[in-house]
Design a protein around this nucleic acid. Structure first.
Lengths: 336, 336
DNA sequence: CCTCCTCGGTGAAACGTTTCACGGGTACTT
DNA sequence: AAGTACCCGTGAAACGTTTCACCGAGGAGG
């Protein structure tokens, strides 16, 4: 339906090569001719055919971003960062949702490769994704997002969850708390166990032998936070932890609600720190202290690594970039 | 880097046409040959070149989805619905984020058209998007999502916000409330004014001349909900509305927090109904009644309309599909 | 006048598919 | 045995670009 370059050429009375030059290297064509061609482009409302361009060039100008869940703000924030960088390099991002389903992930990777994307940013559903290796072997670089921390054979970006746990616990310890609790689970999620591990590290580094109680949960949700809240509220005052670090904000919110409901004061009776700093954290009934991850920056870094690898002049070395999270202290853990 | 069809052909000792047939109409080729070709495909790990396919076919197999904000769960849920339908039709979705910026929107539409997408689903940033009309004229159908209610010249999908307002208010009136309030704003947002209008309609339909107080807010956020909460809490008990309908859940959550903080009981002193039924609504300190929009279904419907238009056999008529929202009653507005 | 350059433009090849008219075999019919 | 129908497979054209070798005109320098 849309006009092609040759129709434009005919209309302007030049050859197709000239039209192409007007489009791609305008300095090569005389101003007068250029203007004439541009007028023809305008009046025929010509639209470039990206498929033909990509075919001829042997490559596209897109990069693929495969996330576990588009509906998760974590990934959409990452996506925003990726887009920024892609924009700067005149690339376009195709966002794909694996929905934590290996079959969907596989289909997306297949499509991306068929589109001859220049590279892929991915948070794989499972550690080893069968389609990924051959793809890389065929020359499509991939950067892992928030996964595969140890692998030196690829670029990756991640946030240091252990540090996050250490920051949170360190802050609580500094406030004088000595009976602490960790609420989170399942521990099989690396992020959760790392945050827990960071917490224990912080506790070992302090004297006065603080006590840590772990309330393992089945999911990172508000209801589980409530359940943990009940458990804590029912402890005797001498037993009860005076500070709780939750593996994510949903747990913390559930916990907070339950504290309020049962008349326990936050932070006086129980101090709370969450994780993720979701939008809602600062707006909770009692604004929630939380560990913030630099998500957009994560996306930016991932995209930059990928583009570096794409434009590799032979000097590229795979790197594992680890970001440091940041503790945002709010009312829920502040000494008044 | 990846092998082409002709290399496969050479390797298998057949012509390119035959390889293509194996790929696209396998029944046309003898089983033995087919197997041989498939083995070659396997061993050379051949990957189709979508650009070449699209070029040859004159069209791609993708549809574009342009949303106002990828980080907004509303749109990601819609996107999930769109993807489902696209999958069923062997199409692939390119998700684009305009971030409420007309320039970005424009760039995305341009890219989509260059990719020769089969159609576009879009929630335009402003009512009239200059690039959209010519695109449609050039044969790329578009379906509006949650916009342009009145236009008969295009397909669109939307949710009936007036009905949502009516449902919420009707429910509150039925519970016997006669002093009501509407919290929301800015009124220039169609959704907000529609919800308000629906509420007034419900009130006019009931006798006993109920009173409606409008607390207009500058944004649909938790802090504004708090502000409205303060205002309400400070009214004398005789003046104070006994039920509040908020234009979205964030306002309702802010309002709820403020009520709790000031010792007003929900729903006994003040009943609350929100809008959107966001994930947190059911998990608020007091589970929030809310009007739920069928977001995924909206996405599905939009995609189906688009695909119908794409496969138009001449019988297509533009339709404006309007969905009915659903009231979810929870503790915040229940008569105990 | 001849040579050499530069400028502006031309025309064709190539990218990897799909499709389609065609043809050589084989087997069946008459 | 000739005609016919069908089955498999071939080869070339076409899709819309980009790129590159080439060419003609005009001007400068000798």
């Amino acid at each position: 339906m849309a006009a092609s370059i040759s129709e434009v050429a005919k209309h302007a009375g030049v050859s197709v090569g000239t039209v192409s030059n007007v489009l791609n290297r305008p300095q090569l064509v005389a101003p007068e001719t250029r203007a004439r061609v541009l007028r023809s482009i305008e009046s025929l409302d010509f639209v470039r055919n990206e498929s033909a361009r990509a075919l001829r060039a042997g490559r596209s100008r897109t990069i693929g971003l495969v996330v576990l869940d588009v509906a998760n703000p974590y990934f959409t924030d990452v996506a925003v960062g990726v887009e920024q960088v892609a924009d700067e390099h005149d690339m376009v991002v195709t966002l794909c949702n694996s929905a934590e389903d290996t079959a969907r992930e596989d289909r997306h990777l297949q499509h991306l490769e068929e589109q001859r994307v220049r590279g892929v940013l991915i948070t794989p559903v499972v550690e080893e994704t069968p389609r990924l290796e051959p793809m890389i072997a065929r020359g499509i670089p991939a950067v892992l997002v928030d996964r595969g921390s140890g692998q030196a054979s690829r670029c990756s970006v991640a946030v240091d969850d252990k540090l996050g746990g250490r920051l949170a616990a360190g802050h609580l310890l500094e406030q004088g708390h000595r009976r602490l609790a960790f609420v989170g689970g399942p521990m099989t999620i690396r992020q959760v166990s790392d945050r827990h591990e960071g917490m224990t590290m912080a506790m070992e580094a302090v004297n006065g032998s603080p006590r840590l109680r772990v309330l393992e949960q089945s999911s990172l949700s508000i209801p589980c936070g409530r359940k943990a809240g009940e458990e804590i509220a029912e402890m005797s005052e001498r037993q009860r932890p005076t500070a709780v670090f939750c593996a994510n904000d949903l747990l913390a919110i559930g916990l907070l609600q339950e504290m309020i409901r049962r008349g326990l004061r936050v932070p006086e009776d129980v101090a709370i720190v969450g994780y993720d700093d979701i939008e809602y954290a600062g707006a909770a009934a009692i604004p929630l202290s939380s560990v913030r991850q630099p998500r957009e920056q994560l996306g930016r870094a991932a995209a930059e690594l990928l583009i570096e690898e794409i434009n590799d002049d032979g000097t590229h070395r795979h790197r594992q970039v680890v970001f440091e999270p940041e503790l945002i202290v709010r009312e829920s853990s502040a000494t008044s």
